[in-house]
Design a protein around this nucleic acid. Structure first.
Length: 230
DNA sequence: GCGACAG
DNA sequence: ATCTTGTCGC
């Protein structure tokens, strides 16, 4: 089953959260994975605006067939507000609850957000990877930091995203002539592998399957709780 | 000081 | 993120 070890407290002020990121960033390891990956997890959360209740979910799929092999959804609470650069403090606590309910132990995790493409190089994918002590990377729909040139319009093309002289991620075209997604390594993985895995998770949509299915899962959870029906 | 700013 | 219908383009 999937587990994780407690790294630190979550009830922090935004200021304390930034300070914690400055100490945690040095534990992050960006490197080429040794063992091949067989399964991948996608995670996401959903919520009603102005409400503290959040629906967190994780979907595990086989990398070779993209078949879903497990889903885990939980209803939790997020007390930390959304602040650009501190997303992990709002989303990870609930995601850990969903993770703990997993029967399988995914080989790598795809987060909805960034990894090193972050002002302090420790986005949700890096922070999450540290907690899970597992290879993790981020795939975001918009940019937080980093400058880049537009990649060629055909699927598979990508351009490096740079921030203060560092290549922090890549603008990757997952579909012909469609806005690219922004990927970056989180922990225990490198940019090349991050790009390859994202392309391997292609299901015909801009958003790769792990994240796309996790999004559908948590959205259905939220709707189910909203209506007195099924 | 001003503008930017993952989900 | 969420609130929402139709509509332009391949």
């Amino acid at each position: 089953m999937a587990n994780y070890t407690h790294l630190h407290d979550w009830n922090l002020t935004p200021s304390e959260a930034v300070a914690l990121q400055q100490t945690l960033r040095y534990s992050i390891r960006i490197e080429q994975p040794v063992a091949p990956f067989r399964t991948i997890a996608g995670c996401d959360i959903s919520f009603n605006k102005f409400e503290e209740t959040v629906y967190a979910g994780i979907v595990v799929l086989r990398l070779d067939t993209l078949e879903t092999i497990e889903e885990s959804g939980v209803v939790s609470r997020a007390t930390f507000p959304y602040i650009p650069g501190l997303l992990s403090f709002r989303e990870i606590p609930a995601l850990l609850e969903a993770w703990a309910n997993l029967e399988t132990d995914p080989d790598v995790v795809m987060f909805d957000g960034h990894g090193t493409a972050h002002p302090r190089r420790i986005g949700i994918a890096s922070h999450g990877g540290l907690w899970l002590n597992k290879p993790a990377f981020g795939c975001g729909k918009s940019v937080l930091v980093g400058k880049f040139d537009q990649p060629a319009p055909e699927q598979g093309n990508w351009t490096p995203m740079r921030h203060y002289g560092d290549v922090v991620g890549a603008a990757l075209r997952t579909k012909n002539k469609v806005t690219p997604v922004y990927v970056s390594p989180g922990h225990l993985i490198d940019l090349q592998t991050t790009i390859a895995l994202t392309l391997q998770c292609d299901g015909g949509y801009r958003i790769p399957e792990p994240t796309r299915r996790a999004h559908l899962l948590v959205n259905n959870l939220r709707k189910a709780a909203k209506d007195p029906q099924t």
